[in-house]
Design a protein around this nucleic acid. Structure first.
Length: 509
RNA sequence: GCCGCGUUCGUCUAGUUGGCCUAGGACGCAAGGUUUUCAUCCUUGAAAUCAGGGGUUCGAAUCCCCUACGCGGUACCA
């Protein structure tokens, strides 16, 4: 294959949705696999929907994910600029070209007139479409006498440029994922190509830029499939070779039907965006995968397997592996419901795989926020002790926080079940016993304590869980002798004394 | 409404040249086990008559047709 050039072309209207991230990922994988180029273009032709900060958000998201572009707004490239608002002056000439070759026409109908027309049709239970059948009833350069058109133009009447579909032609499109798709031009509407505000619409700008930027493969969401025929027609009208198309299936909400939306995330409690986003207008905050404690590689892996799979039973892939094994042919045609549980499972797998010294950084920051500064070697030990029980990075705090912060309260369920008036003295005896193990050794300590409990014919579960309660605050956590080893005898004694004092004869202070 | 796309366990999916599918894996779920705790982990299990109905064929989840349902589009939004 010739080296492909693909693009991810989001609109800066808000935070990047994970569906968009997946689209970008598939583009990236495809480009890298074939030694091609991947570029980022910002499609900001709608000034009304522009949202400040959205572009930076998009760039930061991909930086976090480790998906690198070869060209783009933030890094430049041979086809700069990559922001459509900065390319404004190059689109007009193509609209003019279409106009003079008869592939487009001027339309003067204002939004109100269009709205009225739609209402009129709606009453008859029909839908108005500005197309080959209705355009002569409208006010445009096809229906109006040339001198009237000229008059309006010189009088400065606002107008748009619309594409003029031929009456009855089957447009064929060979989609890389869906195969042949055929649509008759008679069913298509004369899309606006150039708006009255002097900006092109998506359709024109997209085709022009894809051509100028030498895009070979357009890999985008399924929502674009209906307008793909317009796009191939546009290439023909402009006398250009169209790229190959691949329309990706949608990511659906976990329950019910329909596209995954921000609301679903809020409702079901999982992130829909890669990074946290604060709505500049309302101040509303939407959480992101990063803030929720996901590792970027886990997010990528999870997204890659949504709508695609290699056909083997392997589920865990690094980015590089994905680059090698990815193929458009294996993308499924139907939409995939997003599964938040599986997303967590992927993260769990990646946390286990991630090296301790990297994880320790995250944990260190969390402790820092709680006012505790811990040395790195301690953090690494702590992380190693609990990583297998962590799904999200944030859980390091609850799983290993006690290794640095003595418990402030004790689980009452455990007290009720296992503590009694003799427990304080037994725990103190155990401390004395533990102190005899010098230097401390987990196995030796374990054996000594066990036989000591056995000699007194005490209930192992009660004694050990009360010790755990004193050290951890609850009946959970890693092996108790590991904890003792980590804490050191001095700290262990302090915690036991504190617990004895506060829980005392069975009632927490 | 019209146009387009789709339809295998609850979910993601394997299955793509029809027979090796009494439909496999993963998530989740259930039961056991390991862990003196919790989680992890291990084992086992339930779970899709392959949307439904017709064909074609010795034989269909796999090919054809119809129906149903779902989704997407139907803006001077992308």
């Amino acid at each position: 294959m010739m080296k492909p050039r693909v693009r991810f072309a989001p609109s800066p209207t808000g935070p990047l949705h994970i569906g968009g991230v997946r689209t970008a990922l598939f583009n990236y994988l495809f480009a890298k696999q074939h030694g091609g180029t991947f570029l980022l273009r910002i499609e900001d032709t709608d000034q009304h929907r522009f949202v400040a900060g959205a572009e930076d958000y998009i760039i930061e998201s991909f930086q976090w994910l480790g998906i690198a572009f070869d060209e783009g707004v933030h890094i430049g490239g041979k086809h700069a600029p990559y922001r459509q608002s900065e390319r404004k002056n190059i689109y007009r000439q193509y609209a003019d070209q279409l106009l003079s070759s008869g592939w487009a026409y001027l339309a003067f109908d204002d939004p109100e007139a269009l709205e009225a027309k739609r209402k009129e049709y709606e009453v008859q239970k029909k839908t108005f479409q500005y197309d080959v059948f209705t355009r002569l009833d409208m006010e445009n350069s096809l229906s109006l006498p040339p001198e009237e058109v000229q008059r309006r133009l010189s009088a400065g009447h606002p107008y748009v440029v619309r594409f003029k579909f031929p009456k009855d032609r089957d447009i064929e499109l060979d989609d890389l994922i869906r195969g042949k798709v055929v649509v008759n031009t008679g069913t298509l509407d004369d899309k606006v190509l150039f708006k009255s505000d002097g900006m092109p619409t998506y359709h024109l700008a997209n085709i022009v830029d894809d051509h100028l930027m030498e895009i070979t493969h357009v890999i985008r969401g399924e929502e674009w499939l209906p307008s793909a025929p317009l796009h191939v027609m546009l290439y023909e009208a402009l006398g250009w070779q169209p790229p190959q198309f691949a329309h990706l299936p949608l990511i659906l909400k976990p329950d019910g039907n329909g596209k995954l939306s921000k609301r679903d995330g809020d409702r079901l409690g999982f992130p829909v965006f890669p990074l946290q986003w604060k709505n500049p207008d309302t101040g509303e905050i939407s959480t992101g995968y990063r803030e929720k404690g996901y590792l970027p590689d886990a997010v990528i892996n999870m997204l890659a397997l949504l709508g695609w799979n290699p056909g083997t039973e392997q589920e865990l892939f690094s980015l590089d592996e994905l680059v090698n094994i990815f193929s458009l042919e294996k993308i499924s045609k139907s939409g995939s419901k997003f599964n938040p549980e599986k997303a967590k499972w992927f993260n769990h797998q990646y946390i286990i795989k991630t090296e301790d010294h990297i994880l320790s950084k995250f944990f260190g920051e969390m402790l820092q926020k709680n006012g505790v500064t811990a040395p790195e070697d301690k953090l690494i030990r702590a992380v190693a002790l609990v990583k297998e029980r962590v799904n999200l990075l944030g859980e390091f705090q609850e799983q290993a926080g006690f290794l640095f912060i003595a418990p402030r309260q004790y689980d009452e369920q455990v007290i009720k079940k296992r503590w009694d008036e003799q427990m304080p003295s037994r725990l103190e005896q155990m401390i004395a016993l533990l102190k005899t193990v010098v230097p401390f050794d987990k196995t030796v300590a374990h054996d000594k304590v066990m036989s000591w409990i056995h000699d007194h014919a005490w209930h192992t579960g009660n004694v050990m869980n009360c010790l755990r309660l004193a050290l951890v605050g609850a009946a959970k956590g890693p092996d108790i002798f590991e904890i003792i080893d980590f804490l050191g005898m001095k700290e262990v004694e302090q915690r036991v004394l504190a617990a004895n004092k506060r829980v005392g004869n069975g009632f927490p202070a």
